[in-house]
Nucleic acid binder design. Structure first.
Lengths: 414, 414
DNA sequence: AAGGTCTTTGTGGATTTATACAAATATTAA
DNA sequence: TTAATATTTGTATAAATCCACAAAGACCTT
C-alpha cells in the first residue's frame, strides 16, 4: 500500500471556511484553526473541546496573542512557514500556553495568505495526516483568494478616505462620521497619526512585512495605513486608556521588529498628538512629519523621542534660532566659554552641554565624558568663573542649553 | 571783643578755585578740599601735607571714594549738609579712613552746588574759623555758579548726541568718533544702555538726586544720561574689565539708594548687552526696554534679573506663545495635571512650577511651599504618574516649565 | 458607619552630591 | 630654563537626596 489514502479530495465542494475547518478537524482527528496572514482568526473547529490556552486566547480575541506570535518568531517557526509549503511540527512552548501542534502555510507564489494549525492534543499526526493537511491547504487557499480579491476592492475606498483625512479635505464632522459608517468602521474615540520614514524605497516584500506587523500588533488599534515614497503613514487609536505610552512602545517595537525580523534597519518613526476629533488628523500628521524632520536635525538628542508632545525644547529651536538672528543676539556667557576653550584647548562648552543634557547629574555626566567626577566638578567651577554663570539658576541653565542647541542647529544648516 | 575777626573778606578778589582753596587753608590752618555737588574734586590745598587716607584717596581718584560717601550718608552728615547752610562737624570714621573734619555745603536757594571740607588734623576749628568757613562758602559759590552756567551750555550738545546714538541716527563710525572728540570725550571701549523706569513723573528734585547718584558711583563710568517721561536712560561703560556684574550691582544699588536716601521706591531697572561698537547703542537701548517690559509680565521671575543677557527663557516666552497659538498646541502633560488639580483640589501644577523654578531642589521647594520635604517627594511621584512625566528628563522638565510660563504669560494678556 | 484611597508627615538607611585638601601632571609666562 | 598657574585624579567628610515603610488624617463611596 503505497498511497492508500489518496483516492479522492475530502475537502472538495465544502462551502464556507468554518465548515472547512470542521472537516479538516474530522479528518485529522484534532482541533484545527485557520488564520489569515496576519494571524487573525478566520475559522476554527468546534467538534473537539480538547484544546490549549494559546488556542483559547486566539479564539476569544479573534487573533493570535502577540506574545505567542513573538515566541514563534524567535523560535523560528514563522520564518520557516513563510518560506515553505511543507507542514511544520512545532514543539510546545509552555510559557505562552502553546501545546504541540502542526502548522502549514497557505501560499500563492511567494505570498502567504494564511495558516492552518492542527493541535496534537492526545496523538501525534502521522505522515498520512500531514498529506491531508497539504490537501486542506489547497482547499483553504481557494477560499482565501476569494476573500482577498473582495478585500482589495474595499481597500481602495479606505485609502481614499484616509488621504482625505490626512489632507484635511473633510471639514464636516458629520460627513466624516457618515464616511466611517459607510466603510463599516467605528469612528475612533481618540487617534493619532504615526509616520515611519524608511531609509529607502519600500519594496513589495517590505510592504507585506509592514502589513504583517500592523495587523498583528495589539499595542494599538490600526485604523488605516498607507505608503507614500519612503514613508509609512498610519492612523491608530490607543488600545486601552488614552495613554501616549502605548504609541511610544509600538513605534519602538515596530522599528526593532522590522530590523530583527526582516532586516530593514534605519527606520525612524514618530507620532503626532492624540486627538479626539477626526478633523484633527491632518494636524497630527503634520506634527509627526515635523517630529521626523527634527529627528534628522537632532539625531542623538531626539533618539528616544517618539511623539510630538515629547519633543520638548527641540520643537522650539528653529523658531528661536530665527528670533536670535533677527535680534542679532549672541549669548555672552557661551561666547566666553567658547573663546576660553579655543585659547586653552579645553572642553568647557562641551562639558556644559553634556552636564545640562543629563539633568546636572555629576556621575552620569562624568561617565559619558570619560572623566573623573571631581574633574567634572572642577570644570563646572571653572565654567562658573569664566562664564560668570550661576549653575544653581535654573533659568540660566535652560537658556544656556537652548542656546547651545540653537548654535548646533544653526551650524547644521550651513 | 565781640567780633574782632570780621573786618574784611579775606577771600575777595582771588582768581581760580585752586588759589581759593590755598587761601582758605591758610586762614583756617588746615588742609582744605572743595568738591562739587557730586563729590567730584574741584580743588584742594597743597601747602599742608598733613592729611588722612580718605583725603588722599579723594585727590588721587579726583573724587570721594564711594564707600566714604556711603558712610557719610548712613551716618547722616550728607543729608544734613544738603539742607543747611551751617558748617557741620564730623567725627572721624576710621573704617573708611576719615579723620575729624568740618564741612559746609555751598547752596543756591535749595540747590547744592558743592562742599568745602576742612580737616582737623592737629587742632579743632574754633567758632571764628567756622565763621571764616561760611565766608569762604560765599566766595566758592561765585566760582561754582560760573562753572555751572558754562556746563549747561555744553549739556545741550551732549543730550543731542546721546539721543542720536539712542535712536541710531548716526550710522557712520567715523562720524561718531568725531563727535566724541568734539565733545572732548573718549569713545568708550565698551558700553551698555541702562534704563530705569520710575513709578511716576520724575520731578526736578528727583532729577538732582539721580544726577547725584550717577556722578558719585564708581561701579560704572557714566557717559551720558537723559530723562524721558518716567524713564531714566544712561549710557555707561564698565569700570574695569568687561564684566557684566558691575552693571548688575550698580542697578541694584541705584534702586536701593533712590529708595533709602531719597524715598523714591518702585523703580525698575535693567541694561542691554554690552557692546564695543557705539553704533549698537540703539540695540542695547531697545534690549533694556524689552527687559523692562518682561519685568512687568514676570515680576517675580525676573526680580533678580538686571541685564538682557540674563533674561534666559523669559525672552523666549512671547515668541513661543505665538508659536503655540499658531500650532494650536496644548501641552498634554500639563493638561493632565491641571485637570487632576481641578477635580481633586490638589496643587500639583503649582508644585511642579516651584520645583522646576528652583532647580529641582527638594528642600528649598518644600520650604517655599510650606510643606514637608516628603510631601513634596510624594507629590512629585504623583506628578510623574498622573502626567506620565519623567522628572529625570531635562528636556521634558525644560519644556514643562516653559509651557507653564507660556500659560502664565497668556493669561496675563487677557 | 465602614472600608478604601489619597494625602501628609515622620523615621531610618543607602546613595549621591558638595567641598576641601593633597598630589601629580600639563601648560603658560617671564 | 624656572616659576606660576591650570588641570586631572584621588581621598575623606559633611550635606543633601532618594527610597521604603509606617502612621495618621482627609475624603469618597457604598
Amino acid at each position: 500500500m503505497n498511497e492508500p489514502y489518496l483516492e479522492i479530495d475530502p475537502f472538495k465542494g465544502i462551502f464556507g471556511l468554518d465548515n472547512l475547518a470542521e472537516r479538516i478537524s474530522e479528518i485529522l482527528k484534532c482541533p484545527v484553526t485557520i488564520e489569515d496572514a496576519n494571524h487573525r482568526l478566520l475559522a476554527y473547529s468546534t467538534h473537539d473541546e480538547r484544546t490549549d490556552p494559546a488556542r483559547i486566547a486566539t479564539i476569544i480575541g479573534r487573533r493570535v496573542p502577540e506574545k505567542v506570535i513573538n515566541s514563534l518568531w524567535r523560535e523560528g517557526s514563522i520564518p520557516y512557514l513563510l518560506n515553505s509549503d511543507e507542514p511544520l511540527r512545532i514543539k510546545s512552548i509552555t510559557e505562552v500556553g502553546l501545546g504541540d501542534r502542526v502548522a502549514i502555510s497557505i501560499r500563492k507564489k511567494q505570498e502567504t495568505l494564511g495558516f492552518i494549525w492542527a493541535l496534537e492534543i492526545d496523538h501525534s499526526l502521522e505522515d498520512k495526516d500531514l498529506h491531508y493537511l497539504k490537501m486542506a491547504g489547497q482547499a483553504v487557499k481557494n477560499h482565501l483568494l476569494n476573500l482577498h480579491t473582495r478585500k482589495t476592492e474595499k481597500e481602495e475606498s479606505y485609502q481614499e478616505f484616509f488621504w482625505q483625512l490626512l489632507t484635511g479635505h473633510l471639514e464636516n464632522v458629520e460627513e466624516i462620521k457618515k464616511k466611517f459608517k459607510t466603510l463599516n468602521l467605528l469612528p475612533p474615540e481618540a487617534s493619532s497619526v504615526l509616520v515611519f520614514k524608511f531609509p529607502g524605497k519600500i519594496d513589495s516584500k517590505t510592504e507585506k512585512n509592514i502589513s504583517y506587523i500592523l495587523k498583528t500588533t495589539q499595542r494599538i488599534k490600526v485604523l488605516f495605513y498607507t505608503l507614500q515614497n519612503n514613508n509609512l503613514i498610519v492612523l491608530a487609536s490607543p488600545k486601552s486608556t488614552e495613554s501616549t505610552g502605548d504609541y511610544d512602545k509600538f513605534i519602538k517595537s515596530f522599528i526593532i521588529q522590522m530590523n530583527e525580523r526582516f532586516g530593514v534597519g534605519g527606520i525612524k518613526g514618530g507620532c503626532g498628538t492624540i486627538h479626539e476629533n477626526c478633523q484633527r488628523v491632518e494636524k497630527s500628521y503634520q506634527e509627526a512629519l515635523t517630529l521626523l524632520e527634527l529627528k534628522d536635525k537632532f539625531p542623538q538628542e531626539t533618539e528616544a523621542i517618539y511623539s510630538y508632545q515629547a519633543l520638548g525644547i527641540y520643537l522650539f529651536i528653529p523658531v528661536l534660532l530665527e528670533k536670535r538672528k533677527n535680534d542679532g543676539f549672541e549669548n555672552q556667557y557661551l561666547k566666553c566659554l567658547f573663546e576660553y576653550d579655543f585659547r586653552h584647548k579645553t572642553q568647557l562648552y562641551k562639558t556644559l552641554e553634556v552636564y545640562l543634557e543629563n539633568d546636572s547629574r555629576i556621575n552620569e555626566t562624568a561617565n559619558l565624558l570619560h572623566i573623573h567626577a571631581n574633574t567634572l566638578s572642577y570644570r563646572l567651577k571653572r565654567i562658573s568663573e569664566i562664564g560668570e554663570i550661576n549653575l544653581d539658576d535654573y533659568n540660566q541653565k535652560m537658556a544656556l542649553l537652548i542656546d547651545i542647541k540653537i548654535n548646533k542647529f544653526n551650524k547644521s544648516l550651513l
